[in-house]
């Protein structure tokens, strides 16, 4: 990656208010993390853990599993073509069901159920700008 490209990414990261940014493309990966004194640290991502991958503990939903975002974006509780929200409290969901959308430019990334369960709480408000790892809703394992 060229230095000026890296500088651009750093500027975008600083401007966005995000804590971390990871970019992968064929042959290279880079991860930028804001340190506490608000300087940018560049880390070779191969040496770091996957910060935003769903924890293994989410495979079977224990009581009150919080579903987190896996990207930053605008949270859409309802698909704009529809009037009914994708997830409502009390709704039974299956693993990989789409429970909300994160709008990233024109892309709608899914917020998905990590396991079968019942929606117990909606934590994110419709139209909110969410960062990485932000809580969206809570599901409990179905009895």
């Amino acid at each position: 990656m060229e230095l000026n490209e890296l500088q651009q990414l750093i500027a975008k990261l600083e401007a966005s208010g995000l804590r971390s940014l990871e970019l992968s493309r064929p042959g290279e990966r880079v991860k930028l993390t804001m340190s506490d004194n608000s300087e940018v640290q560049v880390v070779n991502a191969d040496d770091t853990v996957e910060l935003f991958a769903a924890p293994a503990s989410l495979q079977a939903a224990p009581a009150g599993t919080t579903v987190l975002t896996e990207a930053a974006g605008l949270f859409l509780a309802t698909h704009p073509m529809r009037s009914k929200p994708l997830a409502e409290v009390g709704q039974s969901v299956k693993k990989n069901d789409v429970l909300g959308l994160l709008k990233i430019g024109p892309v709608y990334a899914p917020v998905t159920a990590p396991a079968d369960g019942v929606v117990t709480q909606i934590l994110a408000s419709d139209g909110a700008l969410l960062g990485f790892g932000a809580p969206v809703l809570e599901i409990a394992a179905s009895a």
């Binding site: 704009p80 789409v98 024109p106 709608y108 990334a109 899914p110 998905t112």
Partner: peptide, 10 residues
């Protein structure tokens, strides 16, 4: 492709 797929803005 994510298991749940993904979409775009109509």
């Amino acid at each position: 492709l994510p298991a749940a797929g993904f979409g775009i803005e109509p």
